[in-house]
């Protein structure tokens, strides 16, 4: 634009005049450009999560009534979270796996909080394309490895929520959480 502005005016001018005019035009057009870019900030960020959505990104769950072998689905950021009370057998099965042989190598201890080994808390979102795996509800298909099974494209997760078979690339995600007491978990 700025260059056009200069070449578009046919008057002959002294070298000094050309430089000054050049400078002013370039500066004016640049200022307009800067303004245009600055306007993009609100135009783009308005589509990011709004304050009420962000504020809802923390959930407290009372886990006192969950028996070993049971799991509940909590809601965190409008998505399911699986909170599973592992049985001794399931813990043993998870520990028996050779970590090095896994697609996404992680031991059970890396996926639970210290002192709360029996509580496996993961997102209920398959890492393949986002379906909700089965296995948290009573009587659901737990897949070939006794953990979770995603019916969309057949991903099998083991008792520690690790991917063992199927297209999913990584283990079920462990969200940020902490035990605020022995029976209350705060997710997020």
């Amino acid at each position: 634009m700025a260059e056009n502005a200069v070449t578009g005016t046919p008057e002959e001018m002294s070298g000094d005049g050309v430089r000054r005019r050049d400078f002013i035009n370039i500066a004016a057009v640049s200022a307009a450009g800067v303004g245009g870019v600055a306007v993009l900030v609100p135009l783009i960020s308005q589509m990011a999560p709004s304050a009420d959505v962000l504020a809802a990104s923390s959930t407290e769950v009372d886990i006192s009534s969950i028996q070993p072998g049971q799991a509940v689905k909590a809601v965190f950021r409008k998505q399911p979270v699986f909170i599973k009370h592992l049985t001794a057998k399931e813990i043993a099965a998870a520990d028996a796996v050779n970590v090095g042989s896994l697609r996404d190598p992680q031991s059970l201890d890396e996926r639970v909080k210290e002192g709360h080994r029996e509580w496996l808390i993961t997102m209920g979102v398959c890492t393949h394309l986002g379906c909700v795996p089965l296995g948290a509800g009573e009587g659901e298909n737990k897949g070939e490895y006794g953990g979770y099974f995603c019916p969309c494209h057949g991903s099998h997760y083991d008792t520690a929520g690790r991917i063992r078979k199927g297209p999913a690339p990584t283990n079920l995600e462990v969200p940020e959480y902490e035990f605020t007491s022995d029976t209350i978990v705060q997710i997020g």
Partner: peptide, 20 residues
């Protein structure tokens, strides 16, 4: 503030283009 600055520049550009 920015608009004021940009408008002053736009005015100078306008004047210089129309000078002749």
């Amino acid at each position: 503030g920015f608009l004021l600055f940009a408008t002053v520049l736009a005015y100078l550009a306008y004047r210089s283009i129309w000078a002749h």
